[in-house]
Computed example of a mutant assay.
Amino acid sequence: MAQTMMKLDPSDPLARFDAALDALEGNLARVLADDQGQAHSAEILELREQVKFLTDERDQLLADLEVERTRVRRLKAANQEVSDRLDAVVGALKDMAPAMQG
Results as ranks from 00 to 15, higher is better:
Glu68Tyr: 05
Arg85Ile: 07
Asp18Gly: 04
Ala15Glu: 02
Leu75Asp: 04
Leu61Tyr: 14
Gln38Cys: 03
Leu32Ser: 01
Lys7Leu: 15
His40Ser: 08
Asp9Lys: 02
Gln50Gly: 10
Asp34Trp: 11
Asp56Glu: 07
Ala78Ile: 05
Asp22Pro: 06
Thr70Ser: 11
Arg16Ile: 05
Gln50Val: 01
Leu28Thr: 09
Ile44Met: 08
Ile44Gln: 09
Asp87Val: 12
Leu28Met: 06
Ala33Thr: 06
His40Met: 10
Arg73Pro: 00
Ser41Pro: 09
Asp56Gln: 04
Glu81Ile: 10
Ala15Asp: 00
Val51Trp: 02
Met1Asn: 14
Gln60Arg: 14
Ala39Gly: 03
Ala88Met: 09
Pro13Leu: 10
Ala97Pro: 03
Leu8Pro: 02
Ala42Asn: 05
Gly91Thr: 15
Asp56Cys: 01
Arg58Met: 00
Arg85Tyr: 06
Asp56Ala: 00
Lys7Cys: 08
Glu46Thr: 08
Leu47Ile: 04
Glu66Leu: 07
Met6Cys: 10
Glu49Val: 06
Arg48Met: 08
Lys76Gln: 08
His40Thr: 08
Met6Phe: 11
Asp64Glu: 12
Asp95Ser: 12
Gln36Arg: 04
Leu21Ala: 10
Arg69Val: 01
Ala20Leu: 08
Pro10Glu: 05
Asp9His: 09
Leu54Met: 15
Leu65Ile: 03
Gly37Pro: 03
Asp87Glu: 14
Glu81Ser: 13
Ala39Asp: 01
Phe17Pro: 05
Arg69Ala: 07
Arg58Tyr: 02
Gly37Tyr: 01
Leu65Trp: 06
